[in-house]
Amino acid sequence: MFAAHRLLLPCALLLLAGCAHKADSFSLQKQSQCPLALHAGQTLILSLPSNPTTGFRWITREAAPGHLQSLGPEVYSNPEDAGLIGSGGISTWRYQATEAGSGRLRLTYERPWETGVAPAEVFECALTVK
């Protein structure tokens, strides 16, 4: 019985250590997942539905200056099973949380050449980097 108690403490510590591990990346797909709390060094992967064949594009208006760093341009992918020309896909951006503080990530879905027209959609997410 004493030996079982000796094993219980190390197992409990391992379990707690596993729970305390910070994820290296966070996938954001819905505005309902906001606000966000990230830690410095963590990668944020933002994926939003889009369909560039309609002329609409997501335009980054604000990306938490000083707190998020872009890791490259937008990447568009179309699901292979869609099989339809002109069907929608997913636009993805990658950011790295840099310095502690608060900011917001704001994108608008619009046709860039249309001036004076309200965006079809707005994605806005408050975030804090710890």
Rank of each mutant, 00 (worst) to 15 (best):
W93V: 10
Q69Y: 11
P79D: 02
Q42T: 06
P65E: 13
A118T: 10
F123N: 07
S102D: 08
V129H: 07
T43Q: 15
G103W: 05
L127K: 03
L46N: 02
Q29K: 09
Q33G: 04
C19M: 14
T53M: 10
A12G: 10
T54F: 07
T98H: 11
L14C: 08
L14M: 09
P10Q: 03
L28H: 02
A3D: 09
H67Q: 12
T108F: 13
I45H: 07
S27L: 14
L105C: 02
A97G: 07
A82T: 06
L44V: 00
C125Y: 06
L15Y: 12
L127C: 02
P119L: 03
A23L: 13
W113F: 15
E80H: 14
A40R: 08
P49C: 08
T115W: 03
L14F: 00
G83E: 02
C19Q: 15
L107A: 09
E74L: 07
T115S: 13
E124F: 07
G116L: 05
I45W: 03
G116N: 03
M1V: 12
A126F: 07
L36C: 06
G55L: 03
A64P: 00
T128D: 13
T128F: 05
E114S: 05
E62N: 15
L48Y: 04
L16H: 06
L9G: 08
P65M: 04
A37R: 10
L13W: 00
Q33A: 10
G66C: 11
P10T: 01
G103S: 10
L107S: 14
H67Y: 04
A64C: 12
G41V: 01
P52G: 08
D81T: 08
S87V: 06
E110M: 13
V117W: 04
T108D: 09
V75N: 07
V117S: 03
G116V: 03
T60I: 15
G55T: 02
H67S: 09
P73E: 15
T60G: 10
H21M: 13
G88F: 02
R106T: 14
A23W: 05
K22L: 12
V122G: 05
L36Q: 11
A97H: 09
R61A: 15
L8N: 05
Q31F: 01
W58K: 14
S91Q: 11
C11Q: 13
P73R: 13
A126I: 02
S91A: 15
S87I: 04
L13C: 11
S32G: 01
I90N: 03
W113C: 01
E110F: 03
Q29M: 09
L9Q: 04
P35M: 07
H39M: 11
M1Y: 08
A4Y: 02
W58A: 10
A126M: 04
A40E: 14
